[in-house]
Amino acid sequence: MNLLRSLATISPRGVLKMWERDRRAFRKVFWVSMVPTFFGPLILMLSLGTGVGTLVSSVQGLTYQQFIAPGLLASSAMLGATYSCTYDCFVRLKYQKVYDAILATPLNIEEIVTGELFWGATRGLLGAGAFLLVITAFGLAKSPLALATLPLLFIVGLMFAVLGMTFTALISDVSLFTHYFTMFVTPLFLFSGIFFPVQNLPSWAAGLIEATPLLHCVRATRCLLNSQVTGQFWWDILYVLAVTLIFFMASIYLMRRRIVK
């Protein structure tokens, strides 16, 4: 009940003002932020796409490059949002005391956090959007449905923003993000069907991965880029939306508990 009351205080204008603060602050770090979200996937696509591509003639009827491009795209949105809502937000929260400063204005903690989450999703979309242009230039996104990946990538970013923010709200030391990346983000990146079909794994492992978040993003992005929207696509979208909603509430609750003393 308290959580619902707290969510009800969120005004879109407050969220937008927080988002604008982040947009203005972003100019300074634009290129740095493009390294993991744009250049990272690009390098992988060029190296693995061509290198492994000579070993693998086709995966599920696609060339290897065609196969990995959508997953790299989804992972780009994941990484942009994750960096934004982990390291960046933690520094603003704990060291720069930005949230304390803004709390002295009419904005409340709910709006600050929601603004940060939408900014995280925006950052995910920026890197992924740039990468989408490259994919298109490579001729890997021919269908007009490829445009629909933009809103999808924003939602992917939002999901990883709320997940990252939840972790941020819980930890006391910045070094703990190493665990988040080593034990969560990197395994997701490697096992979520970006580089090989999950069905190639033992069935227990495939079942386990079905519960994790990135797989659904990869599958949904692949559907759109190859214009094959199936029933599974809608299940994947539903999964992403549900996880986003649950962890949105968790991150708001935990941040309020942490900051308002």
Partner: peptide, 27 residues
Amino acid sequence: GVVPDENNLDIDLSVQANLEVYAGFFN
């Protein structure tokens, strides 16, 4: 208005942008 006991100026923004962004929070 509050002048806090610790410096919490926004180091990601210039001097003037600190004020402008903050003014945005007051609509």
